[in-house]
Design a protein around this nucleic acid. Structure first.
Length: 645
DNA sequence: ATAGGGTTAG
């Protein structure tokens, strides 16, 4: 019938026209025009079908008619409509649906109101969600959990905890959904443990979601032992729980255990995914394991540059392992770059001594339209300070808030203290610390202390060292430094006091330790530890090289006053800091031409620095040493740090 | 109808 009615011939004969006319009359006799009121069944059917088809315009049209004629659908269909709104981000339509459901003559079921509430949460309309929550006649676990979850996601931790208590007062028992969310809002270890108890009591800790949340939160507070116990209690687990425990160790600077767990995970038959690999890369990054990192890179390849976070982790691994060539190459290959990719490169370049390139990178980033964040600016200022660009750094620092809307924080001030200090403007650096808005911390004062060291200002050094110790009373290196300074100024009593304080607090000096990766194995060298199987041979070689270097002008630097080296070591004729052993071992076992890469736990001393510089030239080798805060690329008799650290 | 893991500085 429809086809006849719609048929509009261009030209028809009079005969045919008459026939058509009569046909139309016949049609109207059979199908009289419906009177105004719609057929409820048709309308409802239309509405339901549109909802399930996810045809929002059609559904809304039907809804309008239903509203006019006071026709109601069932709660399930309405919840389908809400899903439809969610999928399209249709807030306006959602509000119409809300009104419809709450108009007189309809009594929405609790689960429908929950769905509506959840929709507001997903639209980030917390107030609307809470208004709905407040007016609902009956609240079940889902209602409460939806609100708690919303507060927790919005980082309104106090609100989330408050609602948990209210929920309990109202006699509603939290379930695993509630706990897995509310755990994220524990603002302290004590409360975390209390909640853990409440989880154990009803046996909810067998749930994998709850378990991974527990592990993550113990990890957040550095409670790795508790995280591990929680993990090991698990009878059935999944990939995500494995990822949680691996990332817990990777993020807390325990790459060794992270890699261990990764091996166990594979042994248990789990296949790693992007999150696993990201954590494993981070573990490699922390330990500067370039060879292992490269191996992981092979597994990363199967994601074909499609995972931004994983790509960023890969970049950082190469930067932190001191291989900027690889980092640059991977960076250009990335199909998508975000502010973290750029910041990683800027900071990586700056830390590895490529200051100009870091600043160029920042320009490219601005040209690309990516907005810098707090960390990006730290990298830019660090590059300025490293290269000694005093004016550039200062003007950048002064205009960062205006230009980028980022208020200078402690790290930014730290870069400026370093920049001023490096330029020899120690009193200006001190003034900046005294007037800075964020409270200076031990790191800030340690930066000034470093500047005093390089410019040999004993008086200010002693002052800065004391400030460091005020804020970090367990810093053994600074105690030793301070006592050396006092001793050197003939202030024997002060020197002895410092030593006594240190003994009294039972502060132990962490032994110097250096690591080198050879054939996928890590070799550790610890000061005064001769457990390495080839130690005798290595010592012989060290002596050999020291002798050879003496012939080209190397004089062991025994002026340790302004270094955190203890007195007895000064007199030790064999002065064998761990990095010397590691460098020489690298020369012995690595193939010719391969860069020697070393990581150490303490900062490199002046003598080892000189040793490495000269050795790199004599042997025509690149040597890269990563200490806790700086990178030293030794090549052809110079170091990328410019001898300032 | 309500829930979990990954990246940049320090």
């Amino acid at each position: 019938m429809k086809s006849i009615l719609n048929y509009k011939p261009k030209s028809i004969s009079a005969n045919v026209a008459v026939k058509l006319q009569s046909l139309l009359q016949f049609h109207h006799q059979c199908h009289p025009t419906p009177h105004q009121s719609p057929l409820p069944n048709t309308l409802l059917h239309e509405f339901t079908a549109s909802c399930y088809r996810r045809d929002l315009p059609a559904a809304m049209k039907a809804l309008t008619s239903m509203q006019q004629h006071q026709i109601w659908a069932d709660s399930v269909t309405y919840s389908e409509l809400i899903k439809c709104c969610l999928a399209r981000g249709a807030i306006l339509e959602a509000k119409i649906v809300h009104k419809h459901i709450f108009s007189n003559g309809y009594n929405p079921k609790t689960f429908l109101i929950n769905t509506l509430m959840n929709m507001y949460v997903k639209f980030n309309l917390l107030d609307d969600a809470q208004a709905l929550f407040d007016q609902m006649p009956e609240r079940n676990v889902v209602s409460w959990t939806t609100m708690i979850s919303a507060f927790s996601t919005a980082k309104l931790d106090d609100k989330a905890m408050e609602f948990l208590i209210l929920m309990l007062r109202n006699g509603i028992r939290p379930n695993m959904y509630t706990f897995s969310k509310v755990l994220r809002s524990c603002n302290g270890l004590t409360i975390l443990k209390q909640i853990h108890c409440s989880i154990i009591k009803p046996g909810l800790d067998s749930d994998v979601f709850v378990r991974s949340a527990l592990i993550d939160n113990y990890s957040k507070w550095g409670e790795l032992q508790n995280a591990l116990t929680t993990f090991k209690e698990m009878e059935t687990g999944d990939l995500i729980v494995w990822n949680s425990i691996i990332s817990a160790f990777a993020q807390n600077n325990n790459g060794d255990e992270a890699l261990n767990l990764f091996k166990q995970m594979k042994k248990s038959g789990f296949m790693s995914d992007q999150a696993t690999l990201t954590s494993v890369l981070r573990a490699c990054t922390g330990m500067a394991l370039l060879e292992l990192g490269r191996q992981v890179h092979v597994h990363v390849l199967k994601y074909n540059n499609q995972d931004l976070i994983l790509g960023n982790a890969l970049l950082d691994m190469y930067c932190k392992c001191g291989s900027m060539e690889d980092a640059r190459f991977e960076f250009t290959k990335m199909v998508e770059k975000d502010v973290i990719s750029w910041s990683t490169m800027i900071n990586g370049l700056a830390q590895n001594g490529f200051s100009h390139e870091a600043l160029n990178m920042f320009q490219s980033m601005e040209a690309s339209g990516t907005r810098p964040n707090y960390i990006t600016i730290v990298g830019v200022l660090f590059a300025c300070s490293h290269a000694g660009f005093l004016e550039k750094g200062q003007s950048f620092f002064e205009s960062m808030e205006k230009n980028y809307g980022i208020k200078p924080g402690r790290e930014h001030y730290g870069c400026m203290v370093d920049l001023l200090g490096r330029s020899g403007r120690l009193s200006e650096a001190l003034d900046l610390i005294k007037t800075m808005e964020p409270e200076p911390d031990a790191v800030t004062w340690r930066t000034l202390l470093g500047a005093c060291r390089m410019h040999r200002d004993m008086g200010l050094a002693a002052y800065a060292a004391n400030r460091v110790l005020d804020l970090d009373p367990d810093d053994s290196g600074t105690y030793i430094l301070l006592s050396n300074i006092y001793a050197n100024s003939q202030r024997w009593e002060d020197a002895e006091n410092v030593r006594r304080t240190m003994r009294g607090k039972n502060v132990k000096k962490e032994p110097g330790c250096s690591w080198i990766e050879v054939n996928k194995e890590i070799h550790a060298f610890v000061l005064r530890d001769d457990s390495h199987p080839e130690i005798e041979m290595i010592m012989k070689e060290v002596k050999f090289y020291v002798q050879k270097l003496r012939e080209v002008g190397y004089v062991p630097d025994t002026n340790f006053v302004l270094q955190d080296v203890e007195g007895e070591q000064m007199e030790d004729p064999l002065l064998c800091h761990s990095e010397k052993l590691a460098i020489v071992y690298g020369l012995m076992v690595l193939i010719k031409g391969k860069t020697i890469r070393i990581r150490k736990n303490l900062r490199i001393c002046g003598d080892c620095h000189l040793f490495a510089k000269l050795l790199a030239k004599m042997e025509n080798r690149s040597i890269v040493i990563r200490d806790p805060i700086r990178y030293h690329h030794f090549q052809g008799g110079v170091c990328s740090c410019g001898d300032y650290w």
